[in-house]
Amino acid sequence: MTARARSRPGMGDICLAITRSTVEATRLFATSALAAPAGLIGRWVRSDDGSRSRVFRETTVRGRRPADPVVLVVRFRLRWVGRARWAHTVFRSICAASTPAFAGFPGFVTKLWLADPWTRVYRGVYEWDGADRAEWYAARLTRVLGLVSVRGSVAHVVLEGLDRDGFVDGRLPLPSGTPSERRAS
């Protein structure tokens, strides 16, 4: 886990970063470099708090391998939807629309989208190239997620020198990212 200081970016900085990401993601779409593989959809991934989440989407940049691999784990609970199944179904179905907002960030390699059907916690498990780039992205993402999430539920952790395989195959549990330890909003 990194111990870097987390800056709190302003909304102007966030909008500029998302605009740049969207431009780069459009280029990735146009060159067929951005993909949504289905092989891991439905896979269960366990967390160190005993919960389990199910993969419902994957986004990846084809052929991109990190020189400095890190795993970024983000967790949050949506505000206002509560236990309404239909609202969670709608949220999961529109997640693809957010792809340009993150897939063009510098260092992005892959993202697994996970949902815990019992606790209603959502997780993003990213592979990133470089801890500084992952933290830079996470500072912006957690600020945006704070607008739509239950207060105190947004958290992230960057794990250096890892890839997502150990989490996906069950050798490693995902860090729970408890707000008291890794609070981001």
Score class of each variant (00 low, 15 high):
residue 14 I to M: 10
residue 106 P to F: 09
residue 75 R to L: 01
residue 37 P to T: 11
residue 51 S to V: 06
residue 77 R to I: 12
residue 135 E to T: 15
residue 6 R to H: 11
residue 168 V to A: 07
residue 8 R to C: 07
residue 115 A to W: 00
residue 124 G to A: 11
residue 39 G to L: 11
residue 68 D to K: 05
residue 66 P to L: 08
residue 58 E to V: 12
residue 42 G to Q: 05
residue 149 S to V: 03
residue 10 G to V: 13
residue 17 A to W: 03
residue 39 G to P: 01
residue 105 F to T: 09
residue 165 D to R: 09
residue 95 C to L: 06
residue 30 A to L: 15
residue 126 Y to S: 08
residue 23 V to P: 00
residue 9 P to L: 09
residue 55 V to N: 09
residue 127 E to L: 11
residue 74 V to W: 02
residue 76 F to L: 06
residue 89 T to K: 09
residue 106 P to A: 13
residue 147 L to W: 06
residue 165 D to V: 09
residue 55 V to G: 08
residue 59 T to S: 03
residue 154 V to E: 03
residue 139 A to H: 00
residue 104 G to Y: 02
residue 60 T to R: 10
residue 158 V to Q: 05
residue 98 S to T: 14
residue 17 A to D: 02
residue 163 D to P: 00
residue 22 T to E: 12
residue 16 L to W: 10
residue 155 A to W: 02
residue 126 Y to F: 15
residue 8 R to M: 08
residue 152 G to N: 02
residue 3 A to V: 13
residue 24 E to C: 02
residue 115 A to E: 12
residue 185 S to C: 13
residue 96 A to F: 09
residue 153 S to Q: 07
residue 84 A to E: 08
residue 49 D to C: 08
residue 181 E to H: 09
residue 87 A to Q: 10
residue 102 F to S: 04
residue 15 C to K: 13
residue 161 G to V: 07
residue 87 A to H: 01
residue 77 R to P: 05
residue 126 Y to V: 09
residue 122 Y to A: 03
residue 31 T to L: 11
residue 21 S to F: 04
residue 11 M to S: 14
residue 129 D to K: 03
residue 140 R to I: 06
residue 139 A to P: 00
residue 36 A to W: 05
residue 137 Y to Q: 02
residue 45 V to W: 06
residue 137 Y to M: 12
residue 119 T to M: 05
residue 83 R to P: 00
residue 156 H to Y: 12
residue 12 G to W: 07
residue 85 R to H: 07
residue 81 V to Y: 05
residue 56 F to I: 11
residue 118 W to L: 13
residue 93 S to M: 07
residue 182 R to P: 00
residue 154 V to C: 01
residue 57 R to H: 14
residue 114 L to Y: 01
